[in-house]
């Protein structure tokens, strides 16, 4: 109980500090957000063109569904994304990681709060925007029940943890190699391809979407989007399977990151600082 109280106190202080820092760069944050909305938008334009050519609907998605799907991708992408690989890589390479290690608790708590701050900021911006857009354009409205909504929030939460841990894993590679960022870029490209960011899972070749059910990609973006767009309403088995796979990967990778952290610290030979 005491530990929990201690953690809460620490986190509220860290959160307010990071919040103030983010607000100092709010214009940048908004530019980053707008830039990140472009890619889903391009995919949306392509699929709309294809579905119009095909006479209205393709793979169970009509134009309306595509619009909702990619709006979902925009929101989910922002709410689950992690950026800590850049900080970690930079800190370890430049040696500025040393002072952070001297603090009385793990530097990862700072990263977690920085991540939360941005997500909070994006949520505050994006959710009302969608409500406003949906009010003007009926095409962008979603039909979803409370249960799906609840599952959506759970999926977003786990996916956030998962993507943060993956970023952390790649960032910590910097203890051993100077190519950590490039490796992360390759992972990002794979994620871009497989997580449902360029197309809904049902439009992939069957073997690929089948395989993807067991990989950490679909769960991190595709699943939450399918939940919020109401695709999975009434498919409780699919939802539970998706969440379980997502959780399993998250737990396994957290375990790996704890081990990597210990091994990495032994390896770390502070440059400069």
């Amino acid at each position: 109980m005491r530990a929990l109280h201690w953690l809460w106190k620490k986190y509220s202080i860290l959160f307010t500090t990071e919040w103030a820092m983010m607000l100092a760069y709010r214009a940048e944050s908004i530019i980053w957000m707008i830039g990140a909305l472009v890619q889903p938008f391009v995919s949306m334009a392509i699929w709309l063109t294809i579905s119009i050519q095909a006479g209205g609907s393709i793979g169970g998605y009509n134009q309306n569904d595509f619009i909702v799907y990619f709006l979902g991708v925009m929101v989910v992408e922002r709410l689950t994304r992690a950026w800590n690989v850049w900080n970690l890589e930079n800190d370890i390479r430049e040696g500025t990681f040393t002072p952070k290690l001297l603090r009385p608790f793990n530097p990862v708590h700072w990263e977690i709060n920085q991540n939360l701050v941005y997500k909070f900021f994006y949520a505050v911006l994006l959710a009302p925007t969608w409500v406003l857009v949906a009010w003007i354009f009926p095409e962008t409205r979603i039909q979803v029940d409370l249960v799906s909504m609840g599952w959506f929030l759970i999926a977003i939460l786990i996916s956030s943890v998962l993507r943060f841990v993956i970023c952390h894993l790649f960032g910590m590679m910097s203890f051993w190699t100077s190519r950590a960022l490039s490796m992360y870029m390759v992972f990002e490209m794979l994620h871009f391809f497989l997580a449902g960011r360029i197309a809904p899972m049902s439009l992939f070749p069957a073997w690929l979407s089948e395989m993807n059910q067991w990989l950490p990609f679909y769960g991190s973006v595709g699943l939450p989007v399918d939940l919020i767009s109401g695709r999975l309403m009434g498919h409780t088995d699919l939802i539970i399977q998706g969440i379980l796979v997502l959780t399993a990967w998250t737990v396994a990778l957290i375990g790996l990151s704890v081990w990597q952290w210990r091994a990495g610290l032994k390896q770390y030979g502070a440059i400069g600082g």
Binding site: I46, W47, T49, I50, Q53, A54, I58, G59, F193, I198, A199, L203, F204, P205
Partner: peptide
């Protein structure tokens, strides 16, 4: 992937 579903875009 796009062309898996469409002959042309």
């Amino acid at each position: 992937l796009y062309f898996y579903r469409a002959p042309s875009i």
